[in-house]
Simulated assay, not measured.
Amino acid sequence: MLRYIEFVVSRLFGTGVDTLVLWLCSTYVFDTYWGDYVVSPIISFEFAVMSNFLCSYCWIWKSRIDNRCAADFWRRFAVFNVSSALGFLVKMLFLLLFEKIFGWSVVWCNLAALLISGLFNYFMAEAVVFGKKAIIKVRK
């Protein structure tokens, strides 16, 4: 239970990072629709993924990492990044599904979808990225 609470706290921090980077990019870096609504969200998503990964690697699942090295870090990050992108797709799927079924506003659909995608992301981190029998193996 404590690990899940730490996970939620780290994701709230990641949401703050995402929002800040999105605001900075759309306010100071880009001045076109494509930059503001496509490129900026991609950049902010990756910053959030990196901050979430750092929290996971250095705090939440640190006791499960035996061989800390650059190769281990980047391999785990690659898998984490893919799982985060899948989590984003899960969120979007449920957001759109809830809108179709219930007709809720996008904010309520997003919050409900975040609950489901959050569980998906936690499971992926717990079982795949940082699991006791994780698929990531680094040669010594």
Rank of each mutant, 00 (worst) to 15 (best):
T27P: 00
L22P: 00
V49H: 05
I43M: 08
T27M: 14
V17W: 00
L12P: 00
L20I: 13
I42L: 11
V49C: 05
S10I: 09
S26N: 09
V38P: 01
T32L: 11
S10Q: 10
E46K: 12
L20C: 11
S10A: 15
I42N: 09
Y33H: 15
P41A: 07
Y28G: 10
S40L: 05
V38S: 07
F30G: 08
G14E: 02
V21C: 10
V17A: 12
G14F: 07
S44R: 01
D18P: 06
P41E: 03
F47S: 15
A48K: 08
F30Y: 13
L24G: 05
S26K: 12
L24D: 01
V17D: 01
T32H: 06
F45S: 02
F45E: 02
G14Q: 03
S44A: 15
S10H: 08
T19D: 06
G16L: 04
T27H: 11
W23Y: 15
T19F: 15
I43G: 00
L20H: 04
R11T: 14
L12I: 15
F30N: 10
D36N: 09
C25A: 12
V38G: 03
D31L: 10
W23K: 08
V38N: 04
V9S: 11
T19E: 05
V9Q: 09
T15Q: 05
V29G: 06
V49K: 02
T19G: 10
Y33V: 13
T32M: 11
W23H: 08
L20Q: 06
Y33G: 11
T32Q: 11
S26M: 13
V29A: 12
V8C: 13
G35S: 07
Y33R: 12
Y37P: 01
I42Q: 07
S44V: 02
V49F: 04
